[in-house]
């Protein structure tokens, strides 16, 4: 799950191995996400390249769990896209011409942490719980389809999804303590591995 520990010195083969491993593990998710947000594959590839470079520069974040690392990468990609949109909006002559809506919500300060937090929490669920949420929520399958895909009865899909949500809440509860000092909705205390937030922000 967790990436290997990379030495802080960045030289030659280590650099390339690091980029490659991030690309091999997270490239599909990153490119698909960036492509949806930008609506353009070439632009998305630029964004992914920039994201990989930032991961390389901040290799210390890659020692966290897979979910947190992916959350970090997706957040960085989204921020790059948001910042590019902002840069464009800041140029007056283009504001009048292109009335394009921002591709993503502009205020990413808070949701940034949440993507990492939630992915990190999902990582701590059992595979059964994670899978049932993945099928029902993210793949938007029906109960019957999820039952088929997971090879379990429909009734089990329903009850398992219930306990998966409860388990998720338990993870938040354990990791986050009281969640003091952050503007979080109750029951969703923050939880992110050290070092991730500063880099993203």
């Amino acid at each position: 799950m967790a990436g290997p520990l990379w030495p802080r010195t960045r030289r030659g083969a280590t650099d390339e191995a690091l980029i490659r491993s991030v690309y091999e593990e997270h490239g599909h998710a990153l490119l698909a996400y960036a492509t949806r947000l930008t609506g353009d594959r070439a632009t998305a590839e630029d964004v992914v390249q920039e994201t990989l470079i930032r991961a390389w520069r901040h290799a210390e974040v890659l020692v966290n769990g897979k979910g947190s690392v992916r959350g970090w990468l997706l957040t960085v990609a989204r921020n790059i896209i948001t910042d590019r949109y902002r840069a464009k909006a800041a140029r007056p002559q283009e504001v009048s011409g292109a009335a394009a809506a921002p591709p993503v919500e502009v205020d990413h300060a808070d949701s940034v942490v949440d993507t990492m937090t939630v992915l990190g929490a999902l990582d701590q669920l059992s595979p059964e719980h994670r899978d049932v949420l993945k099928e029902l929520y993210y793949r938007q399958l029906s109960v019957a389809e999820a039952a088929d895909s997971l090879g379990i009865p429909a009734g089990t899909v329903k009850s398992r999804s219930h306990y998966a949500l409860k388990a998720l809440r338990e993870v938040f509860r354990q990791n986050g303590g009281a969640g003091k000092g952050r503007r979080h909705r109750s029951g969703r205390p923050p939880q992110q591995p050290a070092g991730l937030r500063e880099v993203v922000a």
Partner: peptide
């Protein structure tokens, strides 16, 4: 919890290289 799941894009569950 359902709202929390919404913070994660569906693409987050794609694995492997593009």
């Amino acid at each position: 919890m359902e709202a929390a799941l919404g913070e994660v894009p569906a693409e987050a569950f794609l694995d492997g290289p593009p």
